[in-house]
Write a protein that binds this DNA or RNA. Sequence first.
DNA 1: AGGACCAAGTGGTACTACCAGTTGTTTTTC
DNA 2: GAAAAACAACTGGTAGTACCACTTGGTCCT
Lengths: 226, 226
Amino acid sequence: MSNQTNSEYQKAIDYLYQMASDGQLIVGSKIPSERELAQKTGISRNSTREAISILRGIGIVESRHGSGNYVSKDPGSSISMMIKAMLALKSTSKAEIIQVRKVISYSVCELIMDRGLTKEEVADFQSILDGMITASKEEFAEYDRSFHRKLMLLTDNTLFRTLMEPIGEAYLELIPEVIGHTDADSRKALVDIHALLISGLVDHDREKCKAYFEKHYGFVEDGLEL
Amino acid sequence: MSNQTNSEYQKAIDYLYQMASDGQLIVGSKIPSERELAQKTGISRNSTREAISILRGIGIVESRHGSGNYVSKDPGSSISMMIKAMLALKSTSKAEIIQVRKVISYSVCELIMDRGLTKEEVADFQSILDGMITASKEEFAEYDRSFHRKLMLLTDNTLFRTLMEPIGEAYLELIPEVIGHTDADSRKALVDIHALLISGLVDHDREKCKAYFEKHYGFVEDGLEL
DNA sequence: AGGACCAAGTGGTACTACCAGTTGTTTTTC
DNA sequence: GAAAAACAACTGGTAGTACCACTTGGTCCT
């Protein structure tokens, strides 16, 4: 994991990564104080603070004035910030985000299809769909989000969720643009499309699921005029 | 875009974001020097450097010693860093890494299957497979890696590559453990399995590709005793 | 016990000084 | 006059010190 950059601050980062891989740093735990870290790594406190600033930028460290620096509980959240920055700088990324989300969502469904859905899970999804029917444009996006979040939770693979979550966030920002192009009828159609997926999962029907994805993201791509 | 945090360094970040939204900062352009920035925003050079460290952590600024700080051309590269850090911190299980890699790899193949492979691409893959046949245990892992890297390069979706790269790295660290359980015969079988995938991509044959993934990762899971 | 207080430790900011690269200009050299 | 060497004026990188602002845990007093 060690980086060979010549920078001094890298020593502090390497030192912390080493602690992490030794299991001495778990999520939420306090990292050594800046002065101690500086002394241990043989660099100045300035450079130590620089290292910590970078880690804070990356989102894996949080600082509490007067208390200490801590390993962030939610490092995933700042990945979405980063993807946002990417979006701001590279105008072609919309299509990429949609594509990634589509393809990964589908793969997750493949995983879920093997085990099917419990009655409780079906009921949960149904209540989301029920909410969609009467939802306003603004609410609709939120339902769509919780639908997909729930879907992701079915995998019990935390790495998946961590990777997928920020993409979902970035995707969510595109939703208003999509929904803006819809009327009540097309939103009704969207609800049916979502129902199709649930049905496909219950029946272990790969084709149904595939149809869902084609329709759903066809909708999205039209809305974004891609 | 302005943040209401009380920190001093935030002034520098806000100042730069303001410049960006005014169109004065385009990709690759040089941002004001640290001393100038400090003077303009009324904060110390220390705090200015802290701001720039964070921006460098986020990946939207690159620093060149003796030259200046520049708006990054490739903000995506640091997403990889971030995911790597996450993998180190969250003691992700082997099974999760394998599963994510499998699913994303498969997703990419779905994308590629639509367009198939050019003759040149097939030849490139074939040369990797040829290398595998005579490879030692140690070399085999490296071939496997370049195989999958090449696969990833076929999707011109940079977001995909960005997400996949660190997972590939994590996966790579597991490879020696897998290969350690193999003999020459089973490695020969692995080469055949890889050839199956290429054949599937050429023929647009989804089932062949699927068979590849089942066999390949079945192999891996056995090797890791999952 | 309860509350007020205090002291030690922590991150936050500033200033200064110097090192180490880069870059464009000037001077030297042929 | 053109190429090469030297220089000067930038740039970011590192270090050290001092002090401020805040948190925390303990002590002392009531």
